[in-house]
Simulated scan of single mutants.
Amino acid sequence: MLNRVLIRKPDIDNDIAEELIRTAKDRIKLRVGYYEDVFPSELESIVVEVVCAMYNRMQLNQEGVDSERVDVFSVKFIANLLDEYDEELEAFKRKVHEEELEVSGHAKLRFL
């Protein structure tokens, strides 16, 4: 994944990129309830996009800040970087759950 991040953000320091990748992967695993050691390749693109967004915020020295006005001192914080990926993350969770059911012998019966 580091190579993919470096293609999008060639000026990023490798150590910072690795830390951001680790953080994004940890958050995604918690969000989808995935506790295996090997990170699923289906979610790698989300990690890359989230890392780029995290790095952009670091560069602006406004991590977590969406907008700020000096005259009124209004700051709007972004609730969660992963929110825009909820649909994809939910689809992954369903897929993993269905695979677990099949392995355990409790697969769903579907009527067509």
Rank of each mutant, 00 (worst) to 15 (best):
D11I: 09
I7P: 06
Y85Q: 01
K76T: 11
A107S: 10
K108H: 11
S74K: 13
V72C: 12
K25C: 00
V72M: 12
S45G: 11
F92Y: 09
I7D: 13
E68W: 10
S104A: 05
D71E: 08
V50A: 12
L101M: 12
E90I: 13
S67C: 10
L89H: 01
E68A: 11
I16M: 09
D86A: 07
A91C: 02
L20A: 01
V38R: 03
L101R: 11
H106C: 05
N80S: 13
N3D: 10
R110L: 14
K9C: 12
H97P: 00
N56H: 13
G105D: 04
R94G: 06
A79R: 14
R57A: 15
Y34V: 00
V103N: 07
D15K: 14
L20N: 01
L81R: 08
E19K: 11
D13S: 10
T23H: 05
Y35K: 00
E19N: 12
F111C: 01
K29E: 01
R31E: 09
S104L: 03
Y85L: 02
L30S: 12
D26E: 06
L6N: 09
K29S: 04
D66Q: 15
V32R: 01
F111E: 02
P40C: 05
H106W: 07
I12F: 11
K9Y: 07
E44T: 10
M58E: 15
E68H: 13
L6Y: 09
K93R: 13
L6S: 08
D26T: 05
R27E: 10
E84F: 06
A17F: 00
